[in-house]
Design a protein around this nucleic acid. Structure first.
Lengths: 141, 141
DNA sequence: GTAATTGCAAATACTTTGCCACGTA
DNA sequence: TACGTGGCAAAGTATTTGCAATTAC
């Protein structure tokens, strides 16, 4: 994992970021978390919290996102998205990361088997999934 | 589609909601949208905008979510989630809708073929996807 | 008649930015 | 030295709630 951190820092440097204490601690925290985290969570996690301000974390996350080292999950508007749940109908979506257009995908969803596996392996109830594809649409490219 | 609307209203009634003008117009708007929409969008869409206040839309969306007629997309905290993008590594997640726990899934992701299809069919660039499973974890069940 | 629903407005919560001091290259 | 970066605090934007009036059942 230490090697990973070094590699990450290298990628940051290559992306034009400076090597700062805050950057290293943030990367280390993200690496250790090994799953998506919120800004709020990061603000509270040691040793990051004692190292820097939340504005710093915020700005670092954005620089890292621009550099392709971090990804912001979900539909990228700052607002919550709601959709009808229609019985017998499952939809996946294709979203343009530039213009934000959301289009339903017709293709049958290839995830049901895995969902069944997970249901059996983990004991989770009321399982469902969301699958979104992101990219730059032809118009925006 | 008119039939769908009637059916939706029935499900709402069964879920304990009252049949109001705002409810009908909101359902009609969601049905017509045929994809996830934000509260902000709904506030601006006719004829919904002229029919009711944004607080009403907000509360209706939540009642509908509780009744299982609408689903709120994404990781359900009110905050943005960030995750490291590690080269050669793609991760899907399993999230408990009750306690919010997020766990990475080990299983190989079954979506790559579909992603390739979409790349070719749509001409989207820089395509990637997010796949999340949601359910109630054994602890919370 | 009773309880759910609505509108308006105020309160929260999370995000984003300005400005000047500081540290990296 | 020059310019990206950091801290602090204030502003911005989306969400959430209180309460009295209204409406569905």
């Amino acid at each position: 994992m230490s090697a990973d951190l070094g590699e990450l820092v290298d990628r940051c440097r290559a992306g034009g970021l400076r090597r700062t204490k805050a950057l290293e601690v943030l990367l280390g925290t993200l690496l250790k978390a090994d799953r998506p985290v919120t800004l709020a969570k990061l603000e509270k996690s040691r040793p990051l919290a004692s190292q820097c301000d939340k504005a710093t974390i915020y700005r670092l996350l954005h620089r890292l996102t621009d550099a392709g080292i971090v990804r912001r999950l979900g539909l990228h508007e700052r607002a919550a998205y709601f959709a009808l749940v229609l019985p017998g109908q499952h939809r996946d979506y294709l979203i343009c990361t530039e213009c934000g257009t959301i289009a339903p995908i017709d293709a049958p969803c290839p995830v049901h088997e895995l969902e069944e596996e997970i249901r059996q392996d983990t004991g989770y109830r009321n399982l469902y999934h969301e699958l979104e594809f992101f990219g730059t649409c032809p118009k925006c490219a």
